[in-house]
Amino acid sequence: MAKPPKRRDPLSVLADDPQGRSLGLDLPPGGVVPRAGRRRWGKAPEPLVWVSDEAVGVGALAAHRGPHLAAAGLQAVLLQDRPGLERWWRDREFAPERMSDPDDHHVEPVLREFWSRVVPDPEEGEEGEEIIAPFGRDWPGLAVAGPSAGPDAPDPDAPDPEVAACELADELIERGWLPAPRLALVPSRRGADVPTALGWGGPTNHENDTALISAVLRSWEDRFGARLVALGFDELHLSVALPPPTTARALPVAAEHFAFSPDNIWQGSGSVRAYTDEAVTGSGHWAFWWD
């Protein structure tokens, strides 16, 4: 019995068909960015990501984040320029070969380790204690899921996470948070794994194995309906369909955020309590950055 033909990598298809017509897509002008590093003699460089040639506008993510893309094994996100680092994705900034597999990590030990790195030293006294209050130096544990997350508590009125992601993308573009985003297509099973599939180095000063970042994003997908919307050189934007609705529910989530991206508090809100009210309670947009 003859073996079925081997399925081509979708990025290899896009290298020959940049608008993706053979995959049921209708992409704007763009092309495949190859992996960095030495290539074998006589072999074309291995493709890493497809990126649009020009900035895209409102509606672009919604137009291309659908069943045809999922069937092709691709995830659509936005890549944002940074002043002085325009088109940073073409500048050998990705290193997927350095990353482990998100399947090898579990969110609780990952966040516990992150927490241990960022809690203030006891010598900082009351000032340090105030940064993480009402929590102490011990890891406080995972926050409970969003108000309607999980199979045991379905809510027919809860927003669809994919719809929420596309709506947030449009809002960020309209408000100038993403002034010149490019549409990017990444081969990945789920959005949370996109940073690892790319070998994205945004959090390098905090954690240089992006698979650990993806392990946390997977958990937020499951618990809060979070979806990856955009990546910058050192920033990350998530939509959140099921954010914690009260301060009491949001405080443990804010602790997770501090462990995940301490600069949000160290160089932002100043304390977990303040950050909870400013950026977590009822918020459908979680933004992170690493200095």
Rank of each mutant, 00 (worst) to 15 (best):
V118I: 06
D101W: 11
D91S: 11
D101G: 04
R90C: 07
W88A: 00
V119R: 03
E108T: 15
W115A: 01
S116T: 10
Q75V: 11
L74V: 06
L85E: 15
M99Y: 10
R82D: 07
L69H: 13
D81Q: 09
E86M: 03
P120L: 03
G73H: 02
V119F: 00
L69R: 14
D81W: 11
F94I: 06
V119S: 00
A76I: 00
R82I: 08
D81L: 12
D91K: 13
P96Y: 06
L78E: 00
R117P: 11
D91G: 09
P96K: 07
E108K: 09
S116K: 09
D104A: 14
P120D: 03
S100G: 11
E93N: 15
D103H: 09
V107F: 05
V107R: 14
A95V: 10
F114E: 08
P109D: 00
G73Y: 05
D81Y: 11
P120V: 02
P120R: 02
G66K: 01
R82W: 12
R65P: 02
L74P: 02
V119T: 04
D91H: 12
D104H: 13
W89C: 05
G66R: 04
L69D: 11
R117F: 10
R87K: 05
A70D: 15
R92I: 02
R90P: 01
V77T: 06
L111S: 04
E97P: 09
D104P: 10
W89N: 04
V77P: 04
A95I: 08
R87M: 05
R87T: 06
M99V: 09
Q80T: 03
V77W: 02
V107D: 08
P83C: 12
H68W: 15
D104F: 08
A71N: 13
L79R: 01
R65Q: 08
L78I: 00
L79D: 02
P96S: 01
P120A: 02
R112C: 11
R65M: 07
V77R: 05
P102Y: 09
W88M: 00
M99P: 06
D101M: 10
A71I: 14
L69C: 12
L78S: 02
R92H: 12
W89L: 00
S116C: 09
R82T: 13
W115R: 01
A70N: 14
L85C: 11
A76T: 03
A72E: 07
E97C: 08
D103E: 14
D91N: 13
E93Q: 14
V118C: 10
R117T: 13
A95H: 12
L78P: 01
H106N: 09
W88Y: 06
P102A: 10
P83K: 10
L111E: 07
P96C: 02
A70F: 14
P83D: 10
